[in-house]
């Protein structure tokens, strides 16, 4: 079953097209990533999916219900939204915030308590709940904010840049939470501008630029289709670099000379590396170190848009 179906969604602000005929589908139980720089239209798209904004045109179906003109109240019971801001009341404690948000979903006290206990096994907020949110750090607020977004067990969870401001360890911990939620049956749509996050976390990714989806698919497929070839970096002693170059050319590989290494582009580098090592050893130019660099979504973005993602951010 499809969790989400977006068809020709367009949003125009003051004659500027923020979303330009965006279409995609998300399957139930999938982790779907929206990857793109700031200003690509990810947040606007997510806010339209959440019912906060109205589109200029286009259609959205959430679990086969019309999300634009249909019964939004029913749809809202099924979705959870966590925007970039933490969206919590600074004057209230973490617990008071969560209690209030649970009350918006008509959750009774005992359901709330058991649900919170369950979520606390995924996200550690135990020591944060009695403190006023205004006194917590950005990362601590984000943890409470995530719990607030999933306290009602949404079937579709929409997360806008959920790991912004988190350190790498915290980001990896968060990925584990996302995987666990997926394992429990939630469908997750998240936006990010971290390549490795989209690559590791998402089953499928849509790459957005200037309000359009420029590519969509599994990260591996996208890299294969739009990324560069993998690169093998071969390091030897500098005095042996010429001999190594001759050896590799002698067995039919085109090399590029870098300062202290030779580079070979190859589709299946892991299969080739043992052969290269044995050939070079046989000719007496034992490599000191070999590195394989696989194509990234960054390469995909660069090749599709002509500009590197990091620069655009």
């Amino acid at each position: 079953m499809l969790a989400l179906e977006v068809d020709s969604l367009t949003k125009i602000y003051d004659s500027s097209k923020v979303l330009d005929s965006v279409s995609f589908k998300v399957n139930e139980g999938e982790i779907f990533g929206l990857l793109g720089p700031n200003g690509a239209g990810k947040t606007t798209l997510m806010e339209i999916l959440s019912g906060i904004r109205d589109p200029t045109s286009g259609a959205v179906k959430i679990f086969d219900m019309n999300a634009i003109k249909g019964n939004r109240k029913e749809i809202n019971k099924l979705i959870g939204f966590n925007p970039q801001e933490t969206m919590l009341y600074d004057d209230l404690t973490g617990m008071e915030n969560l209690e209030f948000i649970a009350s918006l979903y008509h959750m009774d006290r005992s359901t709330f308590k058991s649900r919170l206990e369950d979520l606390m096994s995924l996200i550690d907020v135990k020591n944060l709940l009695k403190k006023r949110v205004g006194k917590l750090s950005g990362g601590q607020k984000r943890r409470i904010s995530i719990i607030a977004s999933i306290i009602h067990s949404p079937k579709l969870l929409i997360l806008d840049e959920p790991t912004v401001g988190l350190d790498p360890d915290a980001r990896r911990d968060f990925w584990k939470v996302i995987w666990k939620l997926r394992d429990r049956g939630s469908t997750i749509i998240l936006s990010t501008h971290y390549m490795e996050e989209a690559d590791e976390l998402c089953d499928r990714v849509a790459i957005m630029e200037s309000g359009r989806i420029v590519a969509i698919g599994k990260p591996e497929d996208l890299k294969r289709k739009y990324g560069d070839k993998s690169k093998i970096f071969i390091y030897t002693k500098l005095k042996l670099l010429d001999d190594a170059d001759l050896t590799l050319r002698g067995i039919g590989y085109k090399t590029t000379r870098m300062a202290d290494s030779l580079v070979i582009e190859e589709d299946s580098p892991s299969e080739l590396v043992p052969y290269l090592i044995s050939e070079m050893s046989r000719k007496g130019v034992q490599p000191e170190r070999i590195e394989i660099r696989n194509p990234t979504l960054e390469d995909v973005f660069l090749n599709l848009t002509g500009k590197p993602l990091v620069e655009v951010i």
Binding site: E47, S50, G51, I52, K73, E74, N76, K77, I79, G80, F81, P83, E85, T86, M87, L88, Y89, D90, I101, L104, Y105, H106, A148
Partner: peptide, 14 residues
């Protein structure tokens, strides 16, 4: 100011 209106608007509260 706190952005919390978004959280209320995505809830099933009218």
């Amino acid at each position: 100011l706190w952005g919390t209106v978004k959280r209320i608007l995505v809830s099933p509260v009218s």
